[in-house]
């Protein structure tokens, strides 16, 4: 019984990690290629979730909604890149932080304007509803398993894209020397827009997938954004591999910490104190892990070549 609960929490942690990877991959890609810190990435996550919820409600099909979330988030990303972000590449990080902070205010209030303050709900598609038995677990929600599968597919797809295709070659070249690749005749501005749209689409996908587990509401992107920051700081900013490892570390630490800490502390403290201290510690755990990683590896676990 305990073992089955632990396995279930392990899978939940994996699922959270996979979601965080979708967010962190876009962030780290954008930072790696353009040197830009994008706080508005959480807003694109929100855009994806809202697009999915609205289209799914209108057409009755989750899958159309999912497609809409990819398209809308990518389009929103491309538009924002074209109008605002491209003026920020040569600026210092302070300007980037402020401008993207301003974008968050605009996106959040804009969404509240369009959709109101009440959360929207998104149903799990019938194909993926229900639960399946797994070795050691009586029943685990199929949808969460599917999310883990999607994350694994995206990770593999990104690996193929970056290491095997021409676009990926250009992305890697842009990371190591953007003047040189521009001098070689690659249209660097279009490349930047494409990378930004790609990162945005991943964020939108994450938003849509999570939207069916939680409610879709304004401000949903911000906690995820900050977790994604922790992920890429642990993994090393600019490294996709780091983002994957960091996301799994954060997802598992957070989920298992909330599950295990209160009971572990219960061994040395009275039950009531252990509950509160455990819950408080668990809420801080990933930040403590981050501080530890940084104390020993200030540039993260997989530092990208700067």
């Amino acid at each position: 019984m305990i073992l089955s609960l632990a396995l279930e929490q392990l899978l939940n942690g994996l699922q959270l990690g996979v979601m965080l990877f979708l967010m962190a991959a876009g962030l780290t890609l954008i930072f790696g290629v353009m040197g830009l810190i994008n706080l508005a990435h959480g807003s694109l996550y929100m855009v994806g979730a809202f697009a999915c919820a609205v289209v799914a409600a209108a057409t009755g099909s989750f899958w159309l909604g999912l497609a809409a979330s990819l398209v809308c988030a990518a389009a929103a990303g491309a538009i924002v890149e074209f109008l605002v972000i491209r003026r920020l590449y040569d600026r210092d990080h302070l300007d980037q932080v402020l401008a993207t902070f301003a974008l968050i205010l605009i996106f959040s209030e804009g969404a509240r304007w369009l959709f109101g303050s009440f959360p929207l709900y998104l149903d799990i598609p019938p194909l993926l509803s229900g639960a399946v038995p797994l070795p050691g677990i009586e029943a685990y929600p199929l949808y969460r398993l599917a999310i883990i599968g999607v994350g694994a597919l995206v990770a593999f797809g990104l690996y193929l894209l970056i290491s095997k295709t021409r676009l990926g070659m250009r992305i890697r070249a842009g990371e190591s020397d953007r003047e040189m690749i521009a001098a070689l005749g690659v249209d660097i501005r279009t490349l930047y827009t494409v990378v930004f749209a790609l990162g945005s689409a991943l964020a939108g996908l994450a938003g849509a997938l999570v939207g069916a587990l939680q409610s879709v509401q304004v401000g949903m992107g911000e906690p995820v954004l900050i977790l994604a920051f922790v992920v890429i700081v642990i993994g090393g900013i600019g490294s996709i591999k780091g983002a994957l490892v960091g996301a799994l570390i954060v997802g598992l630490t957070d989920t298992l910490g909330r599950f295990l800490l209160p009971s572990l502390l219960g061994l040395i403290l009275p039950a009531s104190t252990a509950g509160t201290v455990g819950a408080s510690l668990a809420a801080m755990l990933i930040y403590i892990v981050m501080a530890l990683v940084l104390a020993f590896r200030p540039r993260g676990l997989f530092p990208a070549k700067a």
């Binding site: 930072f31 810190i37 990080h93 920051f229 900013i237 801080m284 930040y287 940084l294 104390a295 200030p298």
Partner: peptide
């Protein structure tokens, strides 16, 4: 110990840590 973007994100993360502590 860090600088640039890392510094921005780490100060943010520490602030979140205290924030979640205060909430819980």
């Amino acid at each position: 110990r860090t600088s640039g973007v890392y510094f921005i994100m780490i100060t943010l993360a520490f602030a979140q840590m205290i924030y979640y502590f205060a909430i819980s």
